[in-house]
């Protein structure tokens, strides 16, 4: 009778055994009812787990763009705008400076409103979950 490690039955099921060893185990199974029953039990479970795993598959939506870049550029643009407005308010008459500052504030508020408008329920849910988790 072929001696075997019970874990080899799992490896046989997974196709991870070398061909010669797999053939030896298959031959041994024809002679050994207990071994064959154990293999069949594992094979039934294997199929059940495979079916369950397939039912969980879906195509996730992910963006591979560097998320840090999308934050970095608007911040840099904002810094340049603030500096430009501060400089203009020093060089130009006060009225022009006030208009420029007003325009900058308007742009900032529009950008914030757009971000809030585009945020999905999932984003809000995530924020709440993070807040609850501490």
């Amino acid at each position: 009778m072929t001696a075997y490690d019970p874990a080899e039955l799992s490896a046989l099921l997974d196709g991870e055994l070398e061909a010669t060893r797999a053939a030896e185990l298959r031959a041994a199974m024809r002679e050994n009812d207990a071994m064959r029953a154990e293999f069949e039990r594992l094979a039934g479970l294997h199929q059940r787990l495979l079916d369950d795993a397939r039912s969980r598959q879906f195509q996730p939506r992910i963006a591979l763009a560097d998320s840090t870049a999308s934050v970095r550029w608007p911040l840099l643009a904002l810094l340049v705008c603030v500096l430009a407005v501060r400089l203009a308010s020093k060089l130009a008459p006060p009225a022009v400076g006030a208009v420029l500052e007003g325009l900058l504030l308007l742009v900032l508020l529009s950008w914030l409103a757009t971000r809030l408008w585009r945020a999905t329920d999932a984003d809000y849910l995530k924020l709440v979950q993070q807040a609850v988790a501490g």
Binding site: R56, Q57, F58
Partner: peptide, 11 residues
Amino acid sequence: LLPRSAAFAHA
């Protein structure tokens, strides 16, 4: 690998 990754993460 994405559908399999999704199944693993979902599990």
